[in-house]
Amino acid sequence: MDVAALTPAQARAHFREGLRAPTAGWCRGWTQANLLVVPHELAYDLLLFAQRNPVACPVLDVGDPGAVSTGLFGGDLRTDLPAYRVYKDGRVVADVDDVRDVWRDDLVAFLLGCSFTFEDALLRAEVPVRHIETGTNVPMYLTSIACRSAGSLSGPLVVSMRPIPASLVPAAVRVTSRYPALHGAPIHIGDPGELGITDLGVPDFGDPVEVRAGEIPVFWACGVTPQAAVMASGVSFAIGHLPGHMAITDARDDRFQVP
């Protein structure tokens, strides 16, 4: 199956039927999004947290309480992602393919920009994307950088990492900076220790990838950041996407590209 050639509706149908797979490289040209669903009473705090940490948490869309779709996502948010992560009291209690049995009428869904969307632009600029090459999930790391807190929410910045040949780092910065609603330019280039990351071979989420000779680790802010805040803050109940298993929206990626 050529997953890059699928439409969002076709991809969502596969996920609804039970296919679980990281979505890097899926649906070329269509915007992917992080999902976080919280009780209505927490929605303002999450919106404020996103406003205060916009690089990590760029808000693309917000649903009405109880709604299972949004203006950007025409599918069913309970079934049409490849996998979900369920939290209770800040702890992961389940990774599942379907959340209909835990969905509630007071839940508000947030869709946040995802760096998977600009990977097609990186490939077109001949910048390699290692996790797509290897068919694995992107590595993601908790950092020592604290986000700005908002109401009851606080937690660390999460980053994704892609190893880039040194000569192509300027191209990677230039390409991704054109997508500010999808995390934009890297927040750090080089030594992971400056972010408090001690071992690139042991990501907190996703899969490790090889950093080859002549390559530099390049780090982007990651939309798993609010899920880290859910854990750090002991939120009573929340649903997120399983990291790397995104919501594929009905928006074209060039909608979020700037000159």
Rank of each mutant, 00 (worst) to 15 (best):
K88D: 13
A13R: 08
L112Y: 05
T79F: 03
A33Y: 04
G135K: 02
A56V: 06
G74N: 09
L81N: 04
A67L: 03
E133L: 09
P22I: 09
C222Y: 00
D120C: 04
L35W: 10
R212W: 10
D97V: 09
G196H: 03
V37E: 07
L72S: 13
D101F: 00
R255E: 14
Q51P: 14
W103F: 13
P39E: 04
D199W: 03
T134P: 04
S152E: 12
R148D: 15
V55C: 03
L60Q: 07
D254P: 06
A251C: 11
I187M: 15
M1A: 11
G66E: 05
D106C: 01
C114H: 02
F205I: 00
P128Q: 04
F110G: 07
R174T: 13
E17M: 10
L19P: 09
W220E: 12
V38K: 06
V86H: 02
D45N: 08
T176R: 12
A166C: 05
N53T: 00
L122I: 00
R91S: 13
K88Y: 15
A13G: 11
A21P: 06
D105P: 07
A247Q: 03
L182M: 11
Q227V: 13
N53F: 06
C222N: 10
P226C: 10
L72W: 11
G155E: 08
V202G: 04
V96P: 10
G184F: 01
D253H: 03
S233K: 01
A146H: 13
R28I: 05
V129G: 01
C27Q: 04
A24S: 15
V68D: 11
D120Q: 04
F118V: 05
G29M: 06
V108Q: 02
R148M: 14
R85A: 13
A50N: 06
G135V: 09
R124Y: 10
S144K: 08
L122G: 01
E215R: 03
A33V: 07
A121S: 07
P217I: 00
R52A: 08
S144I: 00
R104M: 08
M161H: 12
V37C: 10
P39T: 05
Y179W: 12
D199F: 06
A9S: 09
E215Y: 06
E119Q: 04
D253E: 08
L153P: 12
A33D: 08
V175P: 01
V258H: 03
F73P: 02
Y141S: 14
L107C: 08
V218S: 06
L6V: 07
P22N: 14
M231E: 15
I216P: 09
R174M: 12
L72D: 08
V99E: 02
D101C: 04
P186G: 04
R212I: 12
P58D: 03
